[in-house]
């Protein structure tokens, strides 16, 4: 039993790592294609059929580029910052059930690394640590624009966490558990939470954009400064790790939102599994859609939005939910 469990867990971890680091590469391809179509361009077309091998070309470039550590940077912190972003993104995935349980032969497989009973809290906490990557990278870079970017990432960090935490509290009160599997099972019998908690759903969705640092809250790496914010001094694979972390985070949060509010994989049938992947794809697409459609907000606007608008709404939502439940 012990050995079987150990082997199973190791295999699951390896599969998640491989699949999602590959998906992060595909994510960049999807993003470029979709952004191109939305602005009536073609996007990558030259490498391979329909530009599909562009991912391989990018990968080769990132892996073989020289890894430059500039003088005056704080060496160790500078080196470890990208690893923090990538590693925490994958650590958060440990509590996400990616598919319903299925059987191979007579062996039952749960596609979740560890069903801890505080799943959602763990995921949000560990994903939050991911913002230490941009912060440390920016602060260690000895570059004024990187430092500004680090300051902005601190601003993002202190703004969104309150909203995610409070918005998720009302659904937790209804379900009475913090495990994502319990959320899924509750919705399979009682109907989707988005209908009973629409406000919490919208708030969490908005906060998810801040959590992953996507447009309209892409102010960590401020695009109109032309340079790449905290990533200015990075090159090669270290810069690539920031990217893998960002895209993996986008995929993971796209798994979490349907699990929390849109019924997840339902009763666990094959149809439910495909519907789950479809919902995930929609939320991932929505990240790219917003990037094409909206400009970035300023840090002070983000803080005002989170603290003065979203947080009071979340608190009122909790109070109303509590009164209704009594």
């Amino acid at each position: 039993m012990e050995t079987a469990y150990l082997i199973e867990t190791v295999i699951k971890i390896v599969i998640i790592l491989l699949v999602f680091s590959a998906l992060a590469g595909f994510g960049t391809y999807f993003e470029r294609k979709i952004l191109a179509f939305m602005s009536r361009r073609l996007g990558p077309m030259n490498v391979g059929p329909y530009g599909l091998l562009q991912i391989a070309a990018d990968g080769i470039k990132l892996f073989t580029k020289e890894d430059i550590i500039p003088t005056n940077v704080v060496g160790r912190i500078f080196k470890i910052a990208p690893v923090i972003t990538a590693a925490t993104a994958f650590m958060a995935a440990a509590a996400i059930p990616f598919l319903p349980a299925f059987t191979i032969g007579s062996y039952e497989v749960n596609p979740i690394v560890s069903d801890i009973n505080i799943g959602i809290l763990y995921i949000l906490g560990v994903m939050g640590i991911g913002l230490y990557g941009p912060l440390l990278g920016g602060m260690a870079s000895a570059n004024k624009f990187s430092l500004l970017s680090a300051a902005r990432s601190a601003a993002v960090f202190i703004s969104y966490e309150v909203v995610t935490g409070l918005s998720i509290l009302a659904p937790i009160m209804i379900v009475g558990s913090l495990s994502l599997i319990d959320f899924n099972n509750y919705q399979a019998t009682h109907g989707w939470l988005v209908f009973s908690q629409p406000v919490a759903f919208i708030l969490f969705w908005i906060a998810a954009f801040a959590e992953t640092g996507r447009t309209p809250f892409h102010l960590v790496a401020n695009d109109h400064e032309i340079i790449d914010g905290f990533g200015t001094e990075y090159s090669g694979m270290r810069w690539g790790l920031f990217f893998i972390g960002e895209y993996a985070n986008m995929f993971f949060i796209s798994f979490v939102i349907p699990l929390l509010f849109l019924g997840g994989f339902g009763d666990g049938s094959v149809m439910g599994a495909f519907a789950f992947l479809g919902k995930m794809a929609f939320f991932f697409f929505f990240f790219l859609w917003t990037r094409a459609a909206w400009p970035d907000v300023r840090p002070d606007q983000l803080m005002m939005l989170c603290w003065k608008i979203l947080m009071p709404i979340a608190v009122i939502n909790i109070v109303i939910t509590g009164i209704v439940m009594m």
């Binding site: 801890i116 809290l121 763990y122 939050g128 640590i129 913002l131 912060l135 202190i158 935490g165």
Partner: peptide
């Protein structure tokens, strides 16, 4: 588990203020 997750959430935010 609960205290563990709370430890992560609370202190990662607190040290961010120190930064």
């Amino acid at each position: 588990d609960f205290l563990g997750a709370v430890q992560i959430v609370v202190y990662s935010g607190a040290v961010m203020a120190l930064y």
